[in-house]
Design a protein around this nucleic acid. Sequence first.
DNA 1: CTGAAAGCGCTTACAG
DNA 2: CTGAAAGCGCTTACAG
Lengths: 337, 337
Amino acid sequence: MRRTNIRDVAKEAGVSVATVSKALNGYQDVNPETRKRVLDVANKLNYVADTNARNMGGKVETTTIALLVNGLRSEDPSGFVFGILSGTHYICKRRNCDFMLLTTSSQEQESMPLLQLCRQKSVNGIVASGFRLGDPYIDQMKEIDLPVALIDMDEKGRNLYNVSIDNVAAAQRATEFLLKKGHRDVAMLNGTPAAEVSRKRYRGYRLAFEKLGLAPNPDYLRYCDFDEGKAIQATLELLHRFPRITAIFAASDLMAIGACRAIGQLGMVPGTDIDVVGFDDIPIAKYLFGGVSTIQQDPYQLGCVAGEAVYRMLHGETDAPLPTVDFDLILRRTAAP
Amino acid sequence: MRRTNIRDVAKEAGVSVATVSKALNGYQDVNPETRKRVLDVANKLNYVADTNARNMGGKVETTTIALLVNGLRSEDPSGFVFGILSGTHYICKRRNCDFMLLTTSSQEQESMPLLQLCRQKSVNGIVASGFRLGDPYIDQMKEIDLPVALIDMDEKGRNLYNVSIDNVAAAQRATEFLLKKGHRDVAMLNGTPAAEVSRKRYRGYRLAFEKLGLAPNPDYLRYCDFDEGKAIQATLELLHRFPRITAIFAASDLMAIGACRAIGQLGMVPGTDIDVVGFDDIPIAKYLFGGVSTIQQDPYQLGCVAGEAVYRMLHGETDAPLPTVDFDLILRRTAAP
DNA sequence: CTGAAAGCGCTTACAG
DNA sequence: CTGAAAGCGCTTACAG
């Protein structure tokens, strides 16, 4: 059962393949009657031009934008990956691009250069998420000829566009809230120095203090790799060693949840005895501990902006500025006003 | 900046393009030395064969499996879509297929036939999710020449494979648990008659009664369209009209959560005054009301099995049976043993 | 073991 | 307005 091709349509319509091609592609130098006939035949025969052949034949080209995720897991409790994915996909659909999901890992990054991967998959531009400082692809993104929108990192390159909320400002806002409430001994549970967002959130935390002529106690900082279990341990240890601590700012909700659990284990109540503010507003945040106070960011919006950035770079529309992605401080039980 | 093609490699290696092609594709009738030289040159030149040309030239073809989601939203609180997606993607990666995400809606289904969509996107097989009885694509799936794995529906077709847990058995198990606890007035909050899973879950609910020589009270059934708000209303109304009801089986966790909220609004406690069992085990289920009892199913596994089914149909491997996707009854606070 | 040539299904200058 | 022909970058019988 051969797939009907342009020759079948041409024969049936009694014209040349060139005319079929032009009619189907909306060229104006085709007799309206001829066009109609061709369109009817094509429809009747259920004809759809072969994408591969199209991409080779002439100038027309379907553009494919890939979402490249580093370290994809089978679960996505924070909804972060899904949000970015659906945002990017939405833009692809609206802009008539193909959407492809590509995943990689540190190991795979070593064995296949980014450029080769993109060519093999016929990808024209990529939205990248989940990368960390030192990942091989990060360097390659700076040099590569394809447009790249990089989420939650801060790297410069010819075709590299950075997409994220203002992590410094967000962390500063969260910390300022705690300081204004009167807290002075505010600990921070951070992710990892390898994550750009961790550096920025630390800067914001620090800035909030500095604006009041204060400085955070360096002993109050712990890296927990965004892991709930590690956050529990770190919190237990912090509160034990430094009983003066009255508030904790965590660079992710999972770590904030860990902190709250630890607080509970010590017989205290988050939001009553120790204030806790997290980051992300993941779906379960509003349900736990009567509600975890947190910085809300919208991954769907990140995905949209990133996708749109890639699309525009692909089409030379670099003038119009893209919207910034906003954030919000959501106050719930674990750190009430 | 032209992309290096096979001719560049041939020239540089001092052989014909035919030889390059064979060497790169692992054909055995190539002198090992020649092969090595070609590989080295290709590597040096960062050469990657153009996928479009490859798919046209000869028999080799990269196969693309698409996940086709009907009614994709920007959020996925149940994690169901993400799970299926990552499962299907995993299989694609393992099987060396391209993974594409396609979405549709009732409206889009009307305007573009499934076959045309698949051809336009050069898709070779599809995993379909989110469809309902009466959707135009459902009928087309039965006839289409591409292999299709359809999740959570029950349709027969030449190239159509159904993937789901045994919804009847799962619903039966949940209901049996409630009956064994002594409940006799067990209400059911169902989704919609248009969803195959709703019909099956109702059958399971019914069967559990019948096995004890009983029958469920038809007045106790409500369709809430998998919506939390509607479940709240339905539960309030049910408990008001039928005070004898002591347990509720909901065909989704969101509806179970709605039921629990309604119970709370009436000054009662889920699991103490009224037992509630849900379905899905979404991420927040374990946190709400001290834990919602529910039927757990693993969407990642569904995605893997569906992807694998498509792959096998694509390669004529229809003999080896695919694993069934299992489920589990998870008992928590809202319906304790 | 190697290569010249045909062919895959399109698009697009170009000639008419 | 229409069509013959070249060309896109590959792969694969086929001949040598």
